[in-house]
Lab assay of single mutants.
Amino acid sequence: NRLGIIYEIQGMKAVVLTSEGEFLIIRRRKDMKVGQQVSFENEDIYNV
């Protein structure tokens, strides 16, 4: 599992900021809110 803070939500995608200072786009889940810490898997990351 990886951890990140939700920075922005766009439709079915969420932008998270990881503890390494990396911004990633992941698959959104219904319970996500901006500012929330979430765990996610590598499979949830969109390749940009």
Rank of each mutant, 00 (worst) to 15 (best):
residue 23 F to N: 02
residue 33 K to D: 06
residue 39 S to T: 12
residue 23 F to G: 01
residue 15 V to L: 12
residue 24 L to E: 02
residue 45 I to Y: 04
residue 36 Q to W: 07
residue 29 R to S: 06
residue 47 N to M: 08
residue 12 M to I: 07
residue 27 R to W: 14
residue 4 G to Y: 04
residue 3 L to N: 12
residue 45 I to K: 02
residue 40 F to R: 01
residue 19 S to F: 12
residue 23 F to V: 14
residue 45 I to Q: 04
residue 3 L to W: 13
residue 16 V to Y: 00
residue 18 T to V: 06
residue 23 F to L: 10
residue 16 V to A: 02
residue 12 M to D: 15
residue 31 D to T: 15
residue 10 Q to W: 15
residue 15 V to A: 06
residue 9 I to G: 00
residue 14 A to H: 01
residue 12 M to N: 13
residue 11 G to K: 08
residue 3 L to Q: 06
residue 2 R to L: 10
residue 45 I to N: 03
residue 28 R to Q: 05
residue 48 V to N: 14
residue 17 L to E: 05
residue 44 D to L: 03
residue 19 S to Y: 10
residue 7 Y to P: 00
residue 47 N to G: 11
residue 44 D to Q: 03
residue 48 V to L: 06
residue 10 Q to C: 14
residue 39 S to M: 08
residue 48 V to S: 13
residue 45 I to R: 02
residue 35 G to L: 04
residue 44 D to H: 03
residue 6 I to P: 00
residue 30 K to H: 15
residue 37 Q to M: 14
residue 30 K to P: 13
residue 40 F to Q: 01
residue 1 N to D: 09
residue 9 I to E: 01
residue 45 I to P: 03
residue 19 S to V: 05
residue 40 F to I: 06
residue 25 I to W: 11
residue 3 L to A: 10
residue 31 D to F: 15
residue 5 I to D: 02
residue 2 R to E: 03
residue 13 K to Y: 13
residue 25 I to M: 13
residue 24 L to I: 08
residue 47 N to F: 08
residue 7 Y to D: 02
residue 39 S to G: 04
residue 20 E to I: 09
residue 20 E to H: 12
residue 15 V to M: 15
residue 1 N to I: 15
residue 47 N to E: 14
residue 47 N to A: 06
residue 44 D to G: 02
residue 28 R to W: 15
residue 17 L to I: 07
residue 3 L to P: 02
residue 43 E to Y: 03
residue 21 G to V: 01
residue 14 A to S: 04
residue 22 E to T: 13
residue 48 V to R: 05
residue 27 R to I: 11
residue 21 G to A: 03
residue 46 Y to Q: 12
residue 33 K to S: 07
residue 39 S to A: 10
residue 1 N to Y: 15
residue 29 R to M: 06
residue 44 D to Y: 06
residue 25 I to L: 15
residue 26 I to F: 01
residue 44 D to F: 06
residue 42 N to A: 09
residue 45 I to V: 07
residue 2 R to W: 10
residue 14 A to M: 10
residue 15 V to R: 13
residue 34 V to A: 05
residue 21 G to W: 04
residue 12 M to V: 09
residue 44 D to K: 02
residue 23 F to W: 15
residue 41 E to P: 07
residue 44 D to T: 02
residue 22 E to F: 13
residue 15 V to G: 05
residue 22 E to I: 14
residue 24 L to K: 04
residue 26 I to R: 01
residue 46 Y to G: 09
residue 22 E to R: 13
residue 36 Q to F: 11
residue 6 I to E: 00
residue 11 G to I: 05
residue 8 E to T: 13
residue 6 I to A: 01
residue 21 G to L: 04
residue 5 I to H: 06
residue 41 E to C: 14
residue 28 R to T: 13
residue 21 G to M: 05
residue 15 V to Y: 15
residue 20 E to D: 09
residue 30 K to V: 15
residue 43 E to A: 06
residue 6 I to C: 06
residue 10 Q to L: 06
residue 42 N to C: 11
residue 1 N to R: 10
residue 32 M to D: 06
residue 12 M to K: 11
residue 1 N to T: 14
residue 36 Q to R: 09
residue 30 K to G: 15
residue 16 V to K: 00
residue 44 D to A: 02
residue 43 E to K: 11
residue 48 V to T: 12
residue 6 I to T: 01
residue 38 V to C: 08
residue 21 G to I: 02
residue 47 N to H: 13
residue 9 I to H: 01
residue 26 I to W: 01
residue 26 I to K: 00
residue 40 F to C: 02
residue 38 V to S: 03
